[in-house]
């Protein structure tokens, strides 16, 4: 059936392939193994949402809108329902899309119906991680909806079909931190602000906020409520190596270190906003 709601060009339009890039690769900025990249954060840019946050970290740009608590129609519910929708701008190549997004979506390059598999995965991770922090009982008969737009992503470096897990996890990390700040900006009552960290465990040990993609190692993303006894609210690992119990501990500790640093930054930003 042809699409009648959107203008998608003549009926037989197709999307050409993108050739292999001939431009030389940019030199990867080297950071220390325990150094976290700088990020820019701003809340309240969007006026028609209840809360919003905008985050830039290198080439990753994320905008999060929070709508809620909004009244629902229909029968009474005792606690608010919470939903998260993460979407990429349609022209952006999504991390690991060669593996996960295999032609399942009606994609003409300019719009998609529904979410891609990667967008689903990210949305559900953000939703499960943020859910424990929100005091849903305070908002009966309401919904709280979070809409995430990935405006730019530098997470895939190689176009050669190699897996780039840290790219995906890195993006999710920034999306999560940005979403927490947007929730705080909306004034919805929270138990704590969720923050997260991402690390890679390679032969030499833990790398905080890994930048280079591909290569060997295990990538981990762990989200915490740092003020509530470092409760873990989200956990995502990628990699094809064997994992021992002590490795998991190291990954969690590494993520916690990074999460606390990000949280400290968020705290000082919010304090500055409040004063």
């Amino acid at each position: 059936m042809s699409e009648r709601r959107r203008l998608l060009g003549p009926a037989n339009t197709f999307i050409p392939n993108i050739g292999i890039t001939s431009t030389t690769e940019e030199a990867v900025k080297t950071r220390k193994r325990d150094e976290i990249r700088k990020f820019f954060l701003k809340t309240g840019l969007i006026e028609n949402a209840n809360g919003s946050a905008y985050l830039e970290a290198d080439g990753t740009i994320v905008q999060v809108l929070v709508f809620g608590p909004r009244p629902i129609r229909g029968s009474f519910i005792e606690r608010a329902s919470f939903s998260v929708e993460c979407k990429f701008l349609p022209h952006i190549a999504q991390p690991n899309e060669g593996i996960f997004n295999t032609g399942s979506n009606n994609n003409n390059g300019n719009y998609r119906t529904g979410l891609t598999n990667i967008e689903q995965k990210i949305s559900s991770y953000i939703e499960t991680s943020l859910l424990p922090s929100i005091i849903l009982e305070k908002y009966p008969k309401s919904t709280i909806d979070v809409f995430i737009t990935v405006i730019s992503s530098d997470s895939i470096e190689d176009h050669g079909g190699k897996t780039t897990n840290s790219g995906l996890l890195n993006l999710v990390n920034w999306v999560l931190n940005c979403s927490s700040v947007a929730l705080a900006d909306s004034g919805i009552e929270l138990k704590d602000i969720v923050s997260s960290g991402v690390v890679r465990l390679d032969k030499e040990g833990i790398v905080l906020d890994p930048q280079e993609t591909g290569g060997e190692g295990i990538d981990g993303l762990v989200s915490f409520m740092n003020l509530r006894n470092d409760e873990i609210v989200g956990f995502w690992m990628e990699g094809d190596e064997d994992l021992e119990e002590k490795d998991v501990e190291r990954i969690i500790d590494g993520c916690n270190t990074m999460s606390k640093k990000i949280r400290a930054n968020i705290n000082s930003y919010l304090l500055e906003q409040a004063s």
Binding site: N17, G19, I20, Q94, G161
Partner: peptide, 25 residues
Amino acid sequence: SASIARSRRSNKRSLISTQSDSNLT
């Protein structure tokens, strides 16, 4: 080659019979 290229292909392309169109890059 590119994983990007693969996923950028539209579903609609299967409707186009000429195979050569798919290789326009």
